[in-house]
Design a protein around this nucleic acid. Structure first.
Lengths: 199, 199, 199, 199
DNA sequence: TATGAATGAGGGTTCATTCAT
DNA sequence: AATGAATGAACCCTCATTCAT
């Protein structure tokens, strides 16, 4: 419905506006997933028209992908090398712990990935490919992180186990209203799973 | 004169039809979640009108809850006492293994719970309450299952870890196209997590 | 939705059931008119299925007409000769007052007629014909009621005025939550309109 | 190069379109009331999609209220001060007559108010509050109009009577296919009701 | 007498998208 | 950079009705 001409529409610079839109989308998609969120809602949160939002992001699907890219970009910027492992450096368990620690400060982000990871199990989900590739990459990274602790043929399964643990604990953490300390529980789990490494 | 031998009956009896509807819904909700599925799709799969489906289940929301109830009912019937633990009997690790084993034969079911569990993190999701309660119950059960293996103050955290592992491995299992043996990976994980119990 | 088999469905005799249905319908149609009422609502109020109601009344339209007939039948029975004026007897202002008095004890009934009278202004309303005929009859009756008080050529207009007054006051009476005495206001109005007659 | 001289413009400006929508709605609601009209019908009459109509008015309920506001706005504009009585000026019977006279030229408008006034007796009707307030205001105005003619304690009842008469006569006028002169009948009624004032 | 299954039509509303401005 | 008009498709749901039981 044509609304009253509202407060003098402040025009933003494109980059700024885009960031604002992606922020809003991250939060909303984190809550209700791809299928449950609407461009309308993003628009409302930004004080924009639906058409206004689309002007910046193109399409609902593109918005989703843009949002994932943006997250990756920001993460790479904020904690360089946390998820990457290009060089010859040998990441260890500390790396995994750092990851958990960082996530524990960003529940919103955790929500987003939880949501989309599960939703994208469906082959036609727009982020299906993204998360398939991501999981492969992450499993490989985790395997390298534990390479020093376990035998070669065990690295794969243990990486699986750690990834499962991480995701599962995060989900419980969210559902419980973050009523427990995520890092602490992670440490307990790792101590059990890789007892030799603790020392 | 006896009537024709009942041509391919169009009109079904209530229970039958309801089961058919719930089956279809389970599959679809498992793929796309509550937000992504439509009554229309269920109807199409059952050869019914949308109104026809609604005649049996009332509402989209009620369909979701009915579907969860139905699952519970069928599970309780098929493997009695798997999730329950009423009496004084002491469930152990075997119980957990049995659970994983059963799930490994029902990927569709696993999908459904994965999907809804995550989606229902959102407070206004129609199954939010259901999964909140369910997680509490399951954590309590798991804690009892490991009561014999670990100290009392450790039962809670370990239950968390096992639940996280179970969910996480299942998810990886689904995403990988079930390319690994779920029970095998579970055993490996448990062997690491509770080494003493292995024997 | 197929409901639980409820309390042992008491079967009623047809006439009884029909009366019950019409009673419910009178109340509901009185509130929301023909367009706003649904067979479903009537059914609910009678503890019947929609099909059950239709079994007794045939059709939504027929229900409406049946309901009007029933009202007329009951009125004729309860206060014989109130609206009729077949014989040579000369009805007077007392007759009109009796009418108002009776209505003042049956707000539900007043509601019904108010509602349908207005709704049926529309030519395609199922009760259009009914109320057209009714108004003619009533105007004729009213004219006879005031024949003794005013000149012949005035009887028509005065009948109009009295009918307008009656309907209008009743409507105000309903809207105000019956916060004034309908008969009293009627008397005041008549005293003004036909001053000579008062004595 | 100048563009073609604007082919029969499909896209309308907001105000224009809105007016068109409200006009259509007034007519339809006047015929069948709030419960009997559908947005679809309004859309069809405007050569728009349902979604198109909703784009301008928001909601079926909002359309109804917008329509009443619009009527008030137009009336206030066309015959300023007819229904208002802000200042110290003393309105008299002439004011009431002017009102009837105006209405007699706008049967459509009369229909609308007749319809909604009655329908909104129902407490949950979207215009219930509107007409409750309106009746209070109008009764107060009418009371002031006859303040010069009758004693103070009679003003209230007489206002009621006049309002009832006006509404009732209008309704008869509509049902009869406007077969009589509304103003003439009004004059007759007023002459009877307030004989002293005639002079 | 009454129900239960099923439908077809229509209800209002939401949504993503296009296009001109 | 952003809006506003408009659409087409989909959404869930309600309704009156039919038919077999």
């Amino acid at each position: 419905m044509p609304s009253e001409p509202t407060a003098p529409q402040q025009r933003m610079r494109s980059a700024e506006r885009r960031r604002q839109i992606l922020d809003a989308a991250i939060e909303i998609v984190g809550r209700r997933g791809y299928y449950g969120f609407s461009v309308q809602e993003v628009a409302a949160r930004c004080g924009l028209t639906v058409a206004g939002v689309l002007h910046h992001v193109g399409t609902k699907d593109q918005l989703l992908l843009a949002l994932l890219d943006e997250r990756d970009r920001r993460d790479a910027e904020a904690v360089p090398g946390l998820l990457a492992s290009e060089e010859g450096e040998r990441p260890g368990l500390a790396r995994l712990r750092a990851l958990v620690a960082r996530n524990s400060t960003q529940p919103e982000l955790v929500r987003l990935y939880s949501m989309l990871r599960t939703e994208s199990l469906y082959e036609e989900h727009p982020a299906h490919g993204y998360f398939l590739a991501r999981e492969r990459r992450v499993l490989a990274l985790f395997a390298r992180c534990v390479a020093g602790e376990v035998g070669e043929e065990e690295a794969g399964p243990v990486a699986r186990q750690l990834l499962a643990l991480m995701g599962g604990l995060e989900e419980q953490w969210l559902r419980s209203g973050r009523s427990f300390d995520l890092v602490e529980q992670w440490d307990l789990a790792v101590a059990r799973l890789l007892p030799a490494a603790g020392r």
